[in-house]
C-alpha cells in the first residue's frame, strides 16, 4: 500500500495543463517539421512554416500554441494499491485544472450547462476517465482538446459484414467532412470495437499515443499506414488549402465486441494534438 496526498495530484495536473498548452510533445513537433520538408504545395509549405514558427514563439513567449486551450481531458490510471489522502480525487483534479488555467493564462472555454451556457470562468469541470490498474503507481495523462476538431468527430455503428473496408471508408468520410474546419494537418484517433461509448473513448485514447508509435497489432498497424497514405491523397492539405499534408498520423485502438456489431468512432484532432503523461 502506498499513500499519495492529493496535493500532489493538484500540483501535477496544474503543471501538465500549462505544459501541454505551451509545448507540443517532441513526437508532434517533429511530425510537423518533417511534413514541412515534404510538402509539395507552395502555400502548404508556407502554412506549415508558420506552424513551426508558431511553436517557437509559444515556447519563447510562454504563450499558448493555440487560443483554444481546450477542455481538460484527464486520464487517471490508479494502481489498486494506492491510497489517496487529502481531498476527494475528482475535486483535486478540478483544482489542478483551475490553477493551471488561471496561472498559465489559458482560456476559460467551459460553460456550466450545454443549453444555458454560462462560462464557469475557471475551465472546470475536467472530463475525467478513471481506470484501476495493478500496482502502486498513478499514471496521469492530460490532453486539452480543442473543439474546432472535436466538432468534426463521429461514431459509426457498422455491421460486421462492413469489415475493414467499411471502417476505412468511414474514417475517410469523417476526414473529408472535417476538411478545413479541423485545422489540418490533423491527427486521427480511431476506436474500433467495444460498444457505442467504448469506441469513442478508445478514439480519444488513441490521440494520446505518440504519433511516432504504431499499433502493436500487425493488422492494425498495417491499417494505420494504409489509411495515412489514402488520406494524404485527398489533397485537403494544410489549412484545407491544398497539399499533401492532410493527416500527420492515424492511431487506432481496438477492443472485443459483440457478434452482432462493429462499432467505431473517429476522434479528429488538429495539429495542436496535446498530450502530457506523468507517472507518480
Amino acid at each position: 500500500m502506498r499513500t499519495i496526498h492529493t496535493d500532489e495530484i493538484v500540483k501535477n495536473i496544474k503543471e501538465m495543463c500549462i505544459q501541454a498548452n505551451y509545448y507540443l510533445s517532441p513526437d508532434m513537433e517533429s511530425a510537423i517539421k518533417s511534413a514541412k520538408e515534404q510538402e509539395n504545395s507552395a502555400l502548404g509549405k508556407q502554412i506549415l512554416g508558420q506552424l513551426c514558427e508558431n511553436m517557437n514563439i509559444a515556447k519563447e513567449d510562454q504563450i499558448p500554441i493555440c487560443q483554444d486551450t481546450g477542455m481538460a481531458i484527464v486520464f487517471l490510471k490508479v494502481g489498486q494499491d494506492v491510497h489517496f489522502e487529502g481531498q476527494n480525487i475528482t475535486d483535486a483534479i478540478n483544482e489542478g485544472v483551475r490553477q493551471g488555467y488561471q496561472e498559465g493564462y489559458l482560456r476559460k472555454s467551459v460553460v456550466n450547462d450545454p443549453l444555458l451556457r454560462v462560462n464557469t470562468k475557471d475551465n472546470t469541470p475536467a472530463i475525467i476517465h478513471y481506470e484501476i490498474i495493478p500496482g502502486e503507481n498513478v499514471e496521469i495523462t492530460v490532453a486539452p482538446k480543442g473543439f474546432g476538431s472535436e466538432n468534426m468527430s463521429r461514431v459509426f455503428m457498422l455491421k460486421p459484414a462492413d469489415g475493414a473496408e467499411g471502417v476505412k471508408k468511414s474514417v475517410i468520410q469523417a476526414v473529408k467532412d472535417a476538411g478545413p474546419n479541423a485545422c489540418p494537418p490533423m491527427v486521427v484517433g480511431v476506436g474500433i470495437g467495444g460498444d457505442f461509448e467504448k469506441s469513442a473513448i478508445m478514439a480519444k485514447t488513441a490521440l494520446t499515443r505518440d504519433v511516432d508509435k504504431e499499433s502493436p497489432l500487425p493488422h492494425i498497424a498495417q491499417m494505420e499506414k494504409e489509411l495515412l497514405s489514402e488520406l494524404n491523397q485527398l489533397g485537403i492539405g494544410p489549412a484545407g488549402l491544398g497539399g499533401k499534408t492532410t493527416v500527420l498520423k492515424v492511431n487506432i485502438e481496438t477492443f472485443a465486441t459483440h457478434i452482432a456489431g462493429l462499432p467505431m468512432a473517429v476522434n479528429i484532432c488538429c495539429h495542436v494534438n496535446r498530450h502530457v503523461k506523468r507517472t507518480l
Partner: peptide, 22 residues
C-alpha cells in the same frame, strides 16, 4: 472570429488565432 487567451502582464493580448466560422 476570435476568443483570445488572457494577456500576460505588460502584453497586449494572449494567443489569438481564428475559430471555426460556420
Amino acid at each position: 472570429y476570435l476568443g483570445p487567451t488572457p494577456a500576460r502582464e505588460g502584453k497586449v493580448i494572449g494567443s489569438a488565432g481564428p475559430t471555426t466560422s460556420s
